[in-house]
Simulated scan of single mutants.
Amino acid sequence: MYDNIGAQPGVPRPPTNAQPSPFGNSLYGAGSGFIRGGLGAYGEKILGSSSEYVQSNISRYFSDPQYYFQVNDQYVRNKLKVVLFPFLHRGHWTRITEPVGGRLSYKPPIYDINAPDLYIPLMAFGTYVVLAGLTLGLNGKFSPEALNWLFVKGVVGWFLQVTLLKMTLFSLGGGEAPLLDIVAYAGYTFTGLSLAFLGRIFSKYAYYFLMPWACLCMGIFLVKTMKRVLFAEVRSFDSSRHHYLLLFIAMAQFPLLIWLGNITLNWLF
């Protein structure tokens, strides 16, 4: 209302703002620039450190999924020999490292037979489900519901194997191995199971020979892997406890694989 009075014709309008200080703009500009620069640098430092923290933890626990699929035919053949005949493996069991970006990193499976991969476990898991369904079909018990239960049973068995290996590392004060490494090592269980099911299709007696063989070889493979690869990252542990845990891992393969090999309409048994 008072502004309308000053806006009448012929009446000069009084000044509403005081004369700006000659140092005001310079101080304000310098202060705002200082604040913006300081906050920007501080925010960039926080975001940068948090980004590095997230990336380091992701690579530490999950790794790059593409790493586990860098395989070729030669690697697949040699890896199957190591898994199915681990006592014939005359080479070392440690993984090969290489400098990448100023730090050591493991070579991919195509260049290292001891590196874990997800190609063989996924293919073996699919083969396990198909051969188990074929076995049900040969016995006249196949149904889509039964195939679904077999799939669920295989996933649960894979999860139990991962849990076994992960809890073993935690019990030693480790547990820092990437999760996908443990998933890959646990997934090799289905290679021996697939071989046992393949023998079961041709002869029931072959299954009773191949199943204990698969349990024994998987136990040896996991013991060698845990001892030379995963336990090597644990800085300090009790040696006697270490041997008991390795023995427990080997013995646990027998009930686990026998349970997975028992093909019934009820996946719990």
Rank of each mutant, 00 (worst) to 15 (best):
D117T: 03
F151H: 01
A132Q: 04
H242E: 13
V71S: 04
R36C: 04
Y111D: 12
S143H: 06
A252K: 04
F170N: 10
K81F: 09
I46R: 11
Y2L: 12
F85N: 10
F190E: 02
V54C: 03
G33C: 06
F62S: 02
I58A: 11
G154T: 05
A252Q: 06
I58Q: 10
E98W: 13
R77L: 13
G157I: 08
G31I: 07
W93A: 05
L150Y: 00
W158F: 12
K141Q: 15
M251D: 00
L260Q: 13
L245E: 09
L246W: 05
L246K: 04
R228L: 00
G133C: 11
V156R: 05
E98H: 14
K224P: 00
K81Q: 12
W93H: 12
L172V: 00
F197T: 00
L257K: 10
Y111A: 08
Y106M: 06
F23W: 14
M167N: 07
N139K: 13
N57K: 15
S49T: 12
E176V: 07
A30R: 14
W213F: 15
G261H: 07
S240C: 03
S171V: 02
P116S: 04
W213Y: 14
L216M: 11
S203P: 02
P65G: 05
P212W: 03
K204E: 15
L169F: 02
I258C: 12
P65V: 05
Y42M: 10
D112A: 05
N25W: 10
W259V: 04
S59W: 06
F87L: 13
F248C: 04
R241W: 12
Y188H: 07
S32V: 09
H243W: 15
A214D: 02
L216A: 15
L80Q: 04
L136K: 05
G154D: 03
K227I: 02
Q70P: 00
F170Y: 15
